[in-house]
């Protein structure tokens, strides 16, 4: 992940396994950093949701056929105006363009397939590597973003 050294940032790369305590810990660590950088409640909600969906995709789909102790790596890079998150799994990857649009009338009552839609809705960009087992998400801080009093 490219780093602009001219402005303050916090970053880390953390391997985690499919364990709720580990997932919650890394997500809350990220939310704490967002608060320190003054991101508002709606930004924290968006980033939290996108991270949850990306990790869920990685563990549920990417690691479906892998041992449960196989880690996924989450990297984050938080700047005052932007947050970059990379989630890399060890699975075979997938074609994101092959996921049916869950908002079409004929798909509305299908219980799965909404994680990627939510990631794309809340993030400025969501890009996969060629194989489809690494996703990079960028959140751009909106001009009216502010911490709750």
């Amino acid at each position: 992940m490219a780093k602009d050294m001219s402005q303050p940032f916090e970053s880390a790369a953390i391997p985690i396994i499919n364990d709720r305590a580990q997932i919650d810990a890394v997500r809350e660590q990220l939310v704490d950093i967002l608060e320190r950088f003054g991101y508002g409640k709606s930004s924290a909600f968006a980033i939290r949701l996108a991270v949850e969906e990306a990790l869920n995709n990685a563990f549920t789909h990417g690691h479906r056929d892998l041992p449960s102790d196989e880690p996924v790596t989450i990297q984050y890079h938080v700047c005052p105006d932007e947050v970059r998150i990379v989630v890399a799994d060890g699975g075979p990857g997938f074609d994101p363009d092959a996921i049916p649009d869950p908002t079409l009338d004929e798909n509305l009552e299908i219980p799965s397939g909404r994680g990627l839609l939510l990631m794309r809705a809340y993030m400025r960009s969501v890009e996969f590597n060629a194989v489809g087992n690494v996703v990079q998400m960028v959140y751009r801080r909106p001009p009216d973003d502010a911490s709750d009093p």
């Binding site: 949850e52 969906e53 869920n56 219980p111 799965s112 994680g115």
Partner: peptide, 16 residues
């Protein structure tokens, strides 16, 4: 405060 797409999936199943 928070729910995921997996929770939405469960609600859809319940609705069905």
């Amino acid at each position: 405060d928070h729910l995921s797409s997996a929770a939405l999936g469960t609600l859809i199943t319940v609705n069905n």
